[in-house]
Design a protein around this nucleic acid. Structure first.
Lengths: 146, 146
DNA sequence: TACAATTAAATTGTGCACAACTTAAAGTGA
DNA sequence: TCACTTTAAGTTGTGCACAATTTAATTGTA
């Protein structure tokens, strides 16, 4: 099987591109009334999972660098969702803490995006197969980075 | 199953985001020596599949609007991969035609990205399951747009 | 035929995402 | 202790991606 010469609609790279775009759009539409973007939602999700994390820790989870994260986190701070805290004993590190407002957004956001998944109506097996396969691809590609 | 409240690593939206980012990175690394970006590769792929298409047609296939495509196609033209042709009987339409240079890039690009897939080593069943599921998700979400 | 409505692409402004580079702080070794 | 190296975040420049708007061409209607 020679993947690279297939038409676009048979190429998995494009299927990934297209589906992630559509998911991003669906999330964007649901999250916009709450005042956050989808990538911001991902940052906040990482913090909802574990609050008080450095830029690098968030970056490690999301595979985003500080070039991307710093402006985003600054905007999240300006909007009142998080605080950026530089503190001893290592002042190079900036910790990102959820505000009360940021903590309460978790449930609102969850409700906002729930409809996407109920509409998609994936059965649980399919969901987990996809999840595991995509994680496997991600891991293999990241391993290939070194 | 309440997807929206799961930690990030159990959320399919993030798995899609992460895997498509990693694929994009892998492609970017392989295509950069040939002088094109991954999104440009997708445009060219659409043209390799069918040359002489309008901006809208390319946009329909890639689900990208002219706001995104116009600057990209202009850069592809500047680099000599395509020509932009506005012609009768409808001068609103701009056709995008591959140059000879653009046509010959197809094989070079295919060779460049082949290693990604051989390294990933997906078996054919897995490949097609993923492809079909992702297309299904994309289609359902696009249908929900209306 | 004239004008309103629609269409195709282009422009403008904003938010990512990345590579390369910079700044400041911390770590290391002589 | 000090010079050098490494680390964490921040900045700069570029290329997307999208929403809103504009421009120009075409179509539809009275």
């Amino acid at each position: 099987m020679s993947i690279e010469t297939l038409p676009l609609d048979k190429q998995l790279c494009f299927a990934l591109y297209a589906s992630s775009k559509e998911i991003a759009k669906a999330y964007r539409d649901k999250l916009a009334p709450h005042g956050i973007t989808y990538p911001q939602y991902l940052i906040l999700s990482a913090l909802w999972d574990q609050d008080h994390r450095t830029v690098s820790e968030i970056g490690a989870e999301l595979q985003l660098d500080s070039g991307t994260l710093t402006p985003m986190i600054k905007r999240l701070e300006e909007a009142g969702w998080v605080l950026r805290i530089r503190q001893k004993p290592d002042e190079r590190r900036v910790y990102v803490d959820l505000t009360e407002k940021g903590k309460t957004l978790k449930d609102d956001a969850a409700c906002a995006v729930a409809e996407i998944w109920s509409d998609l109506n994936l059965n649980e097996d399919t969901y987990h197969v996809l999840l595991n396969q995509l994680h496997s691809i991600t891991a293999k590609l990241q391993k290939g980075d070194d």
